[in-house]
């Protein structure tokens, strides 16, 4: 029963905080023009929510479980709450940058049917493959992973080299040769 109560507190806390952060993002869209500012809002909201969840679990359990169980239930609650945030960020990323989902949407907007060659050109509402790559490169520059001039992509910055090495090594280890 105590575990179900903890799960309920985590769910309510997560939905309330994530909803409030998204509402703030919509309301202050103009002020939060950069991705970093938006990320900061979500990080602050997640941290404040974590404190709230721990506090809420402690209050909800007071006197109803052995004292030795309370820290364990708090750890579990915090882990569940953070799992929720990671899942939320992943879902947002998929819904913003999802390559395959965007192809489905392009098909939908074209009436449900396109020649295969046209689908590639129509990608992303008409930006095509160059538009897709340009968006990704702009994102990588924004994250400080690489530099870019008008015609050239790169060179990699130290953080970009690290991320590239990590990604390439993991792909090699998992034998994922033609992905992405």
């Amino acid at each position: 029963m105590a575990i179900l109560l903890v799960i309920a507190v985590v769910c309510v806390g997560f939905v309330a905080v994530a909803g409030a952060a998204r509402l703030a993002e919509i309301t202050f869209r103009r002020a939060l023009r950069s991705g970093w500012r938006t990320a900061a809002v979500f990080v602050v909201a997640a941290a404040a929510g974590a404190l709230g969840v721990v506090q809420g679990v402690t209050q909800a359990l007071s006197g109803s479980v052995p004292v030795t169980d309370v820290p364990l239930l708090r750890v579990g609650a915090l882990a569940l709450y953070l799992s929720g945030w990671i899942g939320f960020v992943e879902l947002r990323s998929l819904l913003s940058r999802g390559y395959s989902l965007r192809m489905l949407l392009d098909l939908l907007e074209a009436g449900g049917r396109l020649p295969a060659t046209e689908l590639e050109r129509a990608y992303g509402g008409g930006v095509g493959l160059p538009g897709l790559l340009d968006r990704r490169v702009t994102g990588l520059v924004g994250l400080g992973l690489l530099d870019r001039t008008a015609a050239t992509v790169g060179p990699l910055r130290p953080l970009g080299t690290l991320a590239a090495a990590l990604g390439a090594t993991a792909r090699r280890w998992l034998r994922l040769d033609l992905v992405g």
Binding site: L133, R136, L146, V153, P155, R171, G180
Partner: peptide
């Protein structure tokens, strides 16, 4: 998800494989 699907990781890995760590956008 990044390892298995990300286009950005593909771009980074492609740049890493080049001596100058850069290439023309075209």
């Amino acid at each position: 998800a990044g390892i298995a699907r990300s286009v950005s990781v593909t771009i980074l890995a492609d740049l890493l494989a080049r001596p100058a760590r850069s290439l023309p956008f075209a």
